[in-house]
């Protein structure tokens, strides 16, 4: 099953449960509080996911390692390599 289908399946399951509770489609005569909670749930979920995404990406950007040492080491090795290659007869 492709990821797209997995997502469609998951989303339609959620939508089905949400519709059942919100409009009481099966005549389960659920208490009104259930409906009051379920009705705005998609919005809450969306907003929470948005916040989670922003926080995660923000944190990861802030903690992205800057490899200063690696860049310095490379610069030194480039000098070393150029000298050695010249000695070995490379014409750049």
């Amino acid at each position: 099953m492709t990821k797209l289908l997995q997502w469609l399946l998951g989303v339609s399951l959620l939508v089905a449960v949400w519709a059942l509770v919100t409009w009481d489609l099966l005549d389960l005569s659920l208490p009104d509080t259930y409906r009051d909670v379920a009705w705005p749930m998609p919005l809450y979920l969306l907003v929470s996911f948005g916040c989670y995404s922003l926080a995660t990406v923000g944190y990861r950007v802030a903690t992205f390692n800057d490899c200063e040492d690696a860049a310095l080491e490379l610069q030194q090795q480039i000098k070393e390599a150029k000298d050695d290659l010249k000695r070995k007869g490379l014409k750049m």
Binding site: R60, V61, F64, N65, D66, C67, E68, A70
Partner: peptide, 21 residues
Amino acid sequence: GNGGVYGWDLRRKLISRGANF
């Protein structure tokens, strides 16, 4: 872990992390 980048500005990091997420 200790992985990382050198020579990327904030915009580049943001795009990279966002796309990866």
